[in-house]
Structures are given as structure tokens and as C-alpha cells.
């Protein structure tokens, strides 16, 4: 319930934020709250890394459920929808934009919903996990990271965490990754880009979630994102 109220307040604050809606000034990365998309290989500690990253950046973590809630709430507010659509052009990879103006249908509905949700999230910054968000954000608006890992290391990690056999873990990883690939292909098949999809890919075989977060933050800072200083406890 609290989450729903939070989201409604969040959406209302967006509508009232005239400076974001009417300005023609294109803010630099250091002027906007950081938005990060995290794509992950199943078992590569993607969610753990994304959670730590959101904490360090002082922004909210947006998982599948939270993105879905925001998308649905925007959909019932026609006024907000039209305000958001004024900003779509500055958000998208040019090729995605060409198709976004398409004729509707489930995929287009999904994409339009995702784009509007991302515009809303960007106001206060956030870490968005999965959902193909990296394909919709341009490198001017977000930092796009992927967590990779080899099958045997990811399976060992999952087997230890869930107390299941290696064979079972490998099966879960393969089927989850297949589902994720199918989902992205189904929704985004027409939206292939000539640009690369990630700004950074980190191998979780080599780097722990803490180390990955430090590397991601260092890279983002180098690129000009505004990174809060680490709190010393």
C-alpha cells in the first residue's frame, strides 16, 4: 500500500515538475540524477549488484514488479501520459524512435509504457533491472551495464545459495536465460540498433558484487555522472 502511495506521489510530482517538462536546456550527465540499467546473466549476482549500486547512488531500485506498477499507473492518467510523450524524442535511440511512432499493438503498448516509466524514473534517478531497458535508453540519458558470468561459476553460486544440485542449478540458469532472451527478442525484435547495447560489461567470475559496484561507479564518474561520495561509517 505504501509503495502504491509512494508511486502516486512520485507521479504527481513529475507532472508538477515544470522545469523538466518545459525546459529546452539539455542537461549534462552531472546535472541529472543517475539512471542505470542493469542487464544480467542468470546467476551472475545481478540483483545483488544492482541493489548495492542503488544504495551507493542513493536512488531507488526498480525491479520487474515496480516497473510494472509504474507503467500501469501512468496508463490510467491520460494527462500525465501526454506530458510524458512530449519528451520521448530526447530519450530514444534514433532507430527506436522511428518504430516507436508505430501503429500500436501489444509490443508498441509495452514499449510506450516502458519508455514513459523510464522518463518518470529518470527524474529522481534509479537502477532499473532487466526488462530490456538498456535498449530504450540512449547513452546520453543512462549508464547501461551488464553482469556476465560463465555457466559453471554461476551454477556453483546458485547451487550454494539455494542448496540445490549443480545439475538443477544449470537447468534453472539455462531456462531463465532462454526466457529473458525470448522476452527481449519478442518485444524488441524490430528495434535492432547500429550502436552497441552496453557501456560496460563486468564478469562476475572475476569481480565480486562489491568490486563490480566500485568499478561501475568509477566508470560512471569518469564519464561525467554525478556520483555521491561514499559515506564513512
Amino acid at each position: 500500500m505504501d509503495t502504491i502511495r509512494d508511486n502516486q506521489a512520485f507521479l504527481r510530482s513529475y507532472v508538477n515538475a515544470e522545469k523538466y517538462v518545459q525546459t529546452s536546456h539539455q542537461p549534462s550527465l552531472s546535472e541529472i540524477p543517475p539512471l542505470v540499467t542493469v542487464s544480467r546473466f542468470c546467476g551472475a549476482s545481478g540483483t545483488e549488484t544492482a541493489t548495492l549500486l542503488a544504495e551507493r547512488l542513493g536512488v531507488k531500485l526498480y525491479d520487474k514488479e515496480l516497473v510494472k506498477t509504474i507503467t500501469q499507473e501512468i496508463k490510467v492518467d491520460k494527462h500525465l501520459m501526454s506530458r510524458l510523450d512530449e519528451h520521448v524524442t530526447s530519450w530514444l535511440d534514433d532507430l527506436v524512435f522511428d518504430v516507436f511512432i508505430g501503429k500500436g499493438g501489444d509490443k508498441e503498448d509495452y514499449l510506450q509504457g516502458m519508455i514513459r516509466a523510464l522518463i518518470v524514473i529518470s527524474r529522481e534517478g534509479g537502477v532499473v533491472v532487466g526488462r530490456g531497458a538498456h535498449l530504450l535508453t540512449s547513452n546520453k540519458s543512462a549508464f547501461r551495464v551488464r553482469l556476465e558470468g560463465s555457466l559453471n561459476v554461476c551454477a556453483q553460486r546458485m547451487s550454494d545459495r539455494k542448496g540445490i544440485s549443480m545439475r538443477e542449478a544449470e537447468k534453472i540458469i539455462k531456462s531463465t536465460n532462454d526466457e529473458r532472451i525470448k522476452f527481449v527478442r519478442k518485444i524488441y525484435e524490430k528495434y535492432t540498433s547500429v550502436h552497441n547495447y552496453y557501456d560496460m560489461v563486468v564478469n562476475s567470475d572475476t569481480f565480486s558484487p562489491d568490486e563490480s559496484v566500485e568499478l561501475i561507479l568509477y566508470t560512471m564518474e569518469k564519464m561525467g555522472f554525478n556520483i555521491p561520495k561514499k559515506k564513512v561509517s
Binding site: N139, Y198, D199, M200, V201, N203, D205, T206, L215, M223
Partner: peptide, 19 residues
């Protein structure tokens, strides 16, 4: 080999050589 191909992948579309 069994391990993943790369430890780190960085995009030169968004980062300079020095970065």
C-alpha cells in the same frame, strides 16, 4: 576453456581511450 571470455567490456562509443 570454461571461464567467461572477458573480465571487462568497455564501450569506445561512450568512453575515450584515456577513460
Amino acid at each position: 576453456g570454461y571461464s567467461s571470455y572477458y573480465d571487462l567490456v568497455l564501450s569506445s562509443e561512450v568512453m575515450s581511450t584515456q577513460q
